[in-house]
Amino acid sequence: MDISVVVPAYNEVESLPELTSWIKDVMQKHGFSYEVIIIDDGSNDGTWDKIEELNQVDAAVKGIKFRRNYGKSAALNVGFEVVKGDVVITMDADLQDSPDEIPELYRRIKEEKLDLISGWKKKRYDPLTKTIPTKFFNAATRKMSGINNLHDFNCGLKAYRSEVVKNIEVYGEMHRYIPVLAKWAGFKKIEEQVVEHRARKYGTTKFGFSRFINGFLDLLSIFFVGKFGKRPMHFFGAMGVLSFLIGTIMALWIIGEKLYHIAKHIKIEREVTEQPLFYIALVAVILGSQLFLTGFVAELVSRNSSNRNNYQIEKEVV
């Protein structure tokens, strides 16, 4: 099969007939074999009934229904598990992504041998309350991930080699950072393509302000897990040793100063326990010990994890 299109949908009953018809027209025009997998993310507006209806008309339209709303990341992850196409396209169900972009995305994945293409909605129809935070997160993601050639990490319209989606796990709010997940998994041929952003035709946006907080926390999680997931002691241990040493040096300085005053018979104005620096040193020593122990426990958990030796192997000759 040439193409699998994965479409997360939450209360999008009005847009699905037009979207699937549009995808079908594009696929038939270019002679692609394809499937459209729609994941109903706990909708309550009849979305699943519409998916079943569309499946009766066109067997290429398939569906998966969640019992409740889990979020876009969960929908994508489940969709990625069942896709059969050589190239996987993800797009939103709200008709803001254009299926007319699919042939060029497919061509570039195949001819340029790319792992992932992320869409860039250069001209957007979203309100400032959405575009300004998005620009901030994109800038932060570029800085932390080192993927400097992408302007829009969160664009729903993306294309992947099937191998990519089979080797990444998307959860939480991680759908915003799939290019980062792909990079950490060893897929480095990541490019961008300017795509059309259309105004929403039906319904309202399903995302609130909390997504920005969750998205930022997930970005930190990706950075930490990708860099230290298999060696947590390198992070916690280094921080712990540094804090412990700083606290110890400060404590020794205070004690040494007191001993010097005693040896020289100099009047001591304040006892050791009356100095603020003593308590700062004490906190640094305790914090350093806790961080080191945290790293030790995390290392034990990592070594006993079923995924401790789960490495991405691109090719093999046996």
Score class of each variant (00 low, 15 high):
31 G>H: 09
76 L>N: 02
110 K>C: 05
21 S>E: 14
80 F>H: 09
41 D>M: 07
124 R>C: 07
29 K>Y: 09
26 V>R: 09
14 E>V: 01
40 D>T: 05
81 E>D: 14
121 K>P: 01
45 D>I: 08
52 E>A: 09
113 K>D: 12
71 G>P: 00
14 E>K: 15
90 T>P: 01
82 V>D: 05
76 L>T: 01
62 K>N: 14
59 A>N: 12
16 L>W: 02
86 D>R: 14
13 V>N: 03
47 T>H: 03
88 V>W: 00
80 F>K: 03
21 S>K: 15
17 P>D: 12
88 V>N: 00
25 D>G: 11
29 K>E: 15
40 D>R: 02
87 V>R: 08
115 D>H: 14
48 W>D: 04
75 A>C: 15
60 A>T: 12
74 A>V: 09
81 E>R: 15
126 D>M: 10
114 L>E: 01
109 I>G: 00
101 E>M: 15
13 V>C: 07
45 D>K: 13
83 V>E: 01
68 R>Y: 14
35 E>D: 14
119 G>H: 03
15 S>L: 06
52 E>P: 06
30 H>P: 05
85 G>M: 03
50 K>W: 03
130 K>I: 11
85 G>Q: 04
119 G>W: 01
30 H>F: 14
27 M>R: 10
98 S>Q: 10
116 L>V: 12
19 L>K: 02
114 L>R: 07
127 P>K: 12
63 G>M: 02
100 D>S: 14
75 A>E: 00
91 M>K: 03
41 D>W: 06
13 V>M: 10
29 K>M: 10
126 D>Y: 13
124 R>F: 05
21 S>W: 03
78 V>D: 08
9 A>W: 00
50 K>M: 15
14 E>D: 15
108 R>A: 03
115 D>N: 14
87 V>H: 08
120 W>T: 08
74 A>S: 12
77 N>W: 02
129 T>P: 04
102 I>E: 02
32 F>E: 09
63 G>W: 02
113 K>S: 14
